[in-house]
Design a protein around this nucleic acid. Structure first.
Length: 575
RNA sequence: GCGCCCGUAGCUCAGUUGGAUAGAGCACGAGCCUUCUAAGCUUGGGGCCGCAGGUUCGAAUCCUGCCGGGCGCGCCA
């Protein structure tokens, strides 16, 4: 038993096969653009397909002729009550009520698995997200990418992919040396020294105090006056490890757990960049050359230097990119390139979630992945736009310098994990968004989190009431569901295709918008009972109808719960 | 100067990958609670989908050029 939309896609495919066998349709015409969807206007029918229009031209046929031939086949199906051709060649189908009833039953049978797809065919997708520098706690700047990446990973799993959730720890650059020096100050402080103001350029945050204490406890004062070379590595590794513990704890507050943490330092220690460079040099994709002077503001200190450059212009970049600095060490890009090569070894496809401020480097890394994998590993970079933090419409002031940035932990503590996660998914990732502390906790339909939760809570409440009344809802007679009831089923039946299209587009926000629509339809259904008592779900005088409608309502609740689970949001039992 | 993203109702945003008469919420107007959660529902007005061309049966969606906004353009990370 397959879901309704999947089944009709198969029906249409079979009908086209039959037409090919009968010689009506030329064989081998590409069917990829054929779709089955609900028509925009419900008066057109329950399902529509564009098959005739899409296939007519490549098959050298008149769309109406093809549509008529298809119509004859589709009209013969038991589930179809009527078919007609409209406009330029749309085929509109109206389904029997039993088709929708059986979909309701299917939701109940599949339960937590309703909407799961095999589309991903078990292919492994590596999703790299967060990857915040290990120099302090998570702040709100990291939040959206974290939620979008995590929800996308869940979505892909739901759509049939194996998923690796990965975090790239940038523990090899200059910023972790700065971290180590900042910790050295805190270490001296822990030993009783008055360190005064934290100098410009070091991390001022108090979160480094415990790291200093720990080092003081373990090592006493032997590094106080020692040269930096004696303690830098130890302090750096200790600090990074502690920062990563903090970050993991922060992510756990959002329900986020990565499978793999990859260290940039380890990538370098294992000579991965050297291997990548050698591979690319062999193919003439790395060469020694000079960079052009930067455009825009003229830097008086600019001097041309010969560096090993990756030929990213060959893949559409504006400029070839250096993989090593003049001192011989790896650039961020040089190491990152090797890191992506490493990820590609264990996955069929790669996805990175980046902040929009890194948009400028997308081309070079895509170029590198293409060069290193010969284009065999699809690789997407999803950019996540900035979030503006507001409180009652006023921007929240933040200063990184002063160390008073808004931490993720604070926000989760204030408004809750579910609100943060849902809200972050109520916009396309590449659109800027506002996050207003006042609005996201508002209990109104202005706030989609509550609106969707409320629908689920109402359904749960209903189940409790019916159970308390001692009605046996075990074997409902679904023939008691009428056309009005079944409209809800039609919307619920779309869930599997929403999951698939969201997974293909890599846009988890579509789940949020769909759930909002479904919740709206349920609230309307519920309220119909306020105007007309006969339309209530719980009818005291009819256990039969009550159990049928409760079965339907439970199915809606199931779909809401499944959607929320993809988003990582709890389905409220009561509110 | 160059690159990326964006431009849809007064405001905040969707728009099923090119489909039929472009949709929600907020705000504004008019209604709906003795009984399943009114934290809700019903209903009205409101649009040159930034502009101009192009591609085709068909464009908010794809291409080109403008206009306007955001982000980014170092051997940083």
């Amino acid at each position: 038993m397959t879901t309704l939309y999947a089944r009709f896609a198969a029906h249409i495919d079979a009908a086209l096969d039959a037409l090919e066998a009968e010689g009506i349709l030329a064989a081998g015409v590409d069917r990829r653009n054929v779709t089955v969807e609900p028509p925009r206007d419900a008066s057109h029918g329950d399902l529509a397909t564009n098959a005739a229009m899409v296939l007519a031209k490549p098959a050298g046929m008149n769309p109406r002729v093809l549509a008529d031939a298809l119509t004859a086949k589709l009209g013969a199906l038991d589930e179809v009550s009527s078919v007609d051709v409209a406009g330029p060649g749309f085929i509109n189908m109206r389904l029997s009520e039993d088709a929708w009833r059986s979909e309701v039953r299917m939701i109940a049978d599949a339960a937590d698995n309703y909407g799961r797809s095999t589309m991903g065919a078990g292919k492994t997708v590596n999703v790299e997200y967060v990857s915040a520098n290990p120099t302090g706690p998570m702040h709100m700047g990291h939040c959206r990418g974290a939620v979008v990446g995590d929800a996308l990973a869940s979505l892909l799993q739901y759509a049939g992919n194996k998923v690796i959730r990965e975090y790239y720890v940038n523990d090899a650059g200059g910023q972790v040396d700065v971290l180590a020096r900042s910790v050295h100050l805190r270490y001296r402080e822990a030993l009783g020294e008055d360190i005064g103001e934290i100098p410009e350029g070091l991390y001022p945050g108090a979160y480094l105090v415990p790291v200093g204490h720990k080092l003081a406890t373990h090592h006493g004062d032997k590094f106080v006056t020692a040269p930096e070379s004696d303690w830098l590595v130890l302090f750096r590794e200790t600090a990074v490890a502690d920062m990563m513990d903090m970050i993991r704890a922060d992510l756990a507050l959002l329900g986020i757990h990565h499978d793999v943490f990859s260290s940039e330092a380890v990538v370098q220690r294992e000579k991965k960049p050297e291997a990548a460079e050698a591979f690319l040099r062999e193919r003439g994709l790395v060469y020694d050359g000079e960079l052009e002077a930067p455009k825009g503001e003229v830097d008086p200190d600019w001097e041309p230097v010969t560096l090993p450059l990756f030929r990213s212009t060959q893949f559409g970049d504006d400029q070839d990119r250096p993989i090593r600095k003049s001192n011989g060490s790896w650039t961020y890009f040089g190491a990152d390139m090797a890191y992506h090569f490493q990820k590609a070894q264990n996955a069929d496809a790669l996805i990175d979630i980046w902040g929009a401020d890194h948009a400028g480097t997308v081309k070079r890394i895509k170029a590198a992945v293409e060069a290193l994998t010969g284009g065999t590993k699809p690789f997407d970079v999803k950019l996540v736009q900035m979030v503006r933090l507001l409180r009652g419409g006023e921007p929240v002031k933040m200063s990184k310098r002063a160390g008073n940035f808004v931490t993720l932990a604070d926000v989760v503590r204030e408004v809750g994990k579910d609100v943060v996660r849902f809200t972050m998914l109520t916009r396309k990732a590449d659109a800027q968004m506002d996050f207003d502390f006042a609005k996201v906790v508002e209990a109104s339909k202005d706030n989609p989190v509550f609106y969707v939760q409320y629908a689920h809570a109402r359904i749960c409440s209903l189940k409790r009431k019916v159970a308390e009344a001692g009605i046996d809802a075990g074997t409902p007679d679904l023939s008691l569901l009428d056309a009005t009831d079944l409209q809800l089923a039609q919307l619920a039946a779309q869930f599997p295709r929403i999951v698939e299209s969201a997974a293909v587009a890599r846009e988890p926000h579509r789940i949020a918008f769909y759930l909002y629509d479904l919740a709206a339809a349920f609230h309307a259904y519920w309220n119909a009972g306020n105007d007309d008592p006969e339309r209530r779900i719980f009818l005291v005088n009819s256990a039969q109808t009550t159990s049928a409608r409760l079965f339907l309502a439970s199915a809606i609740g199931q779909v809401i719960a499944n959607g929320l689970s993809i988003m990582g949001v709890a389905a409220a039992q009561e509110m």
